[in-house]
Amino acid sequence: MQYEVDIDGRLRHVVVMRVGDRFTVSVDGRTSEVDATRVDPYTLSLLIDAEARSASGAIDGIAGSHEVTIAPDPATRQLTVRVGTVPIAVSLNGRRRWGRKDDGGHAASGPQRVVAPMPGKVVRVLVKPGDPVRARQGLVVIEAMKMENELRAVRDGTVTEVQAREAASVEAGAVLVVIA
């Protein structure tokens, strides 16, 4: 099976071949043997043996035992993969219906929907439709739980919609800004 995995805007091409609990995984052409067990719905135990069976060479530094948790992030619709102490945002190519035309190989991640994490009030709107934004750039300031919080872009992109209005109250989950 093949996947395209997006980390921080960079696409990695992954091929997975499975025999029982053992996987041969190639990432951008470099191969490892992986013994994988699902400990619970969100936790994988990986034993990665980076000794290459293929001629294309092994991936450095990933051999050994790794406990990885994977959970969906409802705010960004990505997966949060925790490796060691590091949480990493990852997207997989979305589900494609069998028999439909190929989507044209677009990036695995869709538009960013910036939503209010809790009920609050919009204090300031910092962008307008058409603005280009960089990752971590501030978009909207909302006041909630008596503190002001700045919501930021996860990735680079262009603002397509601004639904936030200054002084408006918003509910948890309200879409404030959409970035393509």
């Binding site: 099976m1 093949q2 996947y3 395209e4 995995v5 980390i7 990695r12 992954v14 997975v16 499975r18 996987f23 995984v25 990432v27 490892s32 992986v34 994988a36 699902r38 994988l44 990986l46 990665i48 991936i59 450095d60 530094g61 990933i62 790794h66 990885v68 994977i70 997966l79 993969v81 490796v83 060691g84 102490t85 590091v86 949480p87 990493i88 990852v90 997989l92 190519n93 589900r95 494609r96 069998w98």
Partner: peptide, 28 residues
């Protein structure tokens, strides 16, 4: 905390294997 190259590789492998293990996975 920024992931290093090895941690990114492991994350990619884990995400792919998790999807392969999950019944909702679809092969492209």
């Amino acid at each position: 905390v920024e992931p290093n190259a090895a941690e990114e590789d492991i994350a990619v492998i884990a995400a792919a294997i998790q999807t392969a293990l999950s019944p909702a996975a679809v092969d492209i």
